[in-house]
Simulated scan of single mutants.
Amino acid sequence: MSETFVNDLVRGLSDRVESLSVVTNDVVGKSPGPTPVKEVPFLALRSIADRLRYRVAEFFGRNRRQHQLLMRHANRQLRPVLGRIDPDVAYIDFGRAAVAARAPLQALEIPFAVHFHGADVTSHLSDPAYRTALHKVFRDADALVVASHHIRRLLVLEGAPPEKIRVVRLGVNLEGVEPLSWEKRKETGPSIVFLGRMVPKKHPIALVEAFRLVKEEVPQATLTLIGDGPERNRVSRRISRHELQDHVTMTGALPRQEALSIVRKHWVYAQHSVTTRSGDQEGFGISLSEAAMLELPVVSTLHDGIPEQVEDGETGYLVREHDFEAMGKRLVSLLQAPGTVRHKGKNSRRKIESKVRLKERSLEIKSTLDVIKEKK
């Protein structure tokens, strides 16, 4: 429930369906308004006996046995709860949750749709038991929802029936945060901003290296990093190594509205997304769409669905993964041309707005669920 897009979808659907319940493995942060949220720990073993059996299976490399223990636990946790709720249709975020929920949903004859986001069709596929179970999800799900055509292709290549797949972008909810006028933004001087978790697939180190090159050409430039995560200490050390402390601000994680209020004050949004060594990829980088809606040009990478959000040369620029030198050059070209920043920022909002309006995206999801319900 900590994922922004999950909360936004819950809020969007709550106004459009007769009754909505949320079942989540754990509750992190605030619940999405008045919608009832049931915390059901179905993704992690709870009993000491099961955990011991899992460790023994892990020691002996029995992947299938580990998976069986997890699925049995998920069924015990979910079936009684789903039975009491008795939904017309279930909507599942993430492939791992779908693998865990498939059997109890099938037993209760509850039709379901699954929304895939990135790791669930990339790095998670290295788990043989998960991959096998995922094909059962493909078979039994009534619809497979994705936020980009790139993920649609990954699903088809993995064996998902193309006719079940529907592309629905993630909606952007700015909720009281409007674009700042260019005249106001220009007063702050050349500036770059990033918003997101500091994790390997967003490669914040590459962004810092790109900014180091920017500083050589645009000495007054600044960089703001909004977010937290396992890469934060490495990022901090890299900033110190290049003596950029006076030019880079690290805010840590912030409430969404506060973060977007900072984003809108900058000239350019930058994010260096990459495929990690484990194969993990971005799904749909919602921060890029938020920045575009706030009229910032975006400099990012040719990664996953990002080319479906950023039009190279029109609304920003795209570079190859890990090519921080090219990213630095593109950032310099923008920061040295304020008129271009303004023009591409306006283009960003105009091009992305129709794709990510939250109301329309919620209606698309509701339409998908209505079709499933009618079929059953």
Rank of each mutant, 00 (worst) to 15 (best):
Y130H: 05
Q77F: 05
I239C: 08
D15P: 00
D304I: 11
K38D: 13
K366Q: 10
E321S: 09
K329D: 14
I92L: 13
L134A: 05
L9Q: 15
M71Y: 01
D304M: 12
L13M: 13
F211T: 05
L174F: 10
E183C: 01
L9W: 04
V81N: 04
H303Y: 07
E360V: 03
E311V: 14
L82V: 08
V121C: 08
L244R: 01
L180K: 12
M293K: 03
R256V: 01
F116T: 05
P338W: 04
G305F: 02
V263S: 06
E360H: 06
Y130I: 08
P36E: 09
R96E: 07
P162Y: 00
L170E: 00
R131Y: 01
E308T: 04
I286A: 10
K351C: 00
W267M: 05
V274P: 00
L369F: 05
T224L: 10
T251S: 14
T301L: 07
F112P: 12
K351Q: 07
H149R: 13
V27S: 06
Q220R: 14
N233R: 15
R320H: 14
K186W: 09
G252F: 02
L254I: 03
M250Y: 11
R11N: 12
E282S: 05
D8T: 14
R152C: 02
V10K: 08
M198E: 04
D142C: 10
L207F: 00
W267S: 14
W267C: 12
L254V: 04
E175K: 14
I205S: 14
R51W: 02
P200A: 02
R357G: 05
R361V: 15
F194D: 04
G159N: 02
L296Q: 07
R166N: 04
V268Q: 09
D86Y: 06
R234D: 06
R55P: 03
G305I: 03
A221S: 13
L318R: 08
L13R: 10
S21G: 00
A133R: 03
E175H: 11
V268D: 03
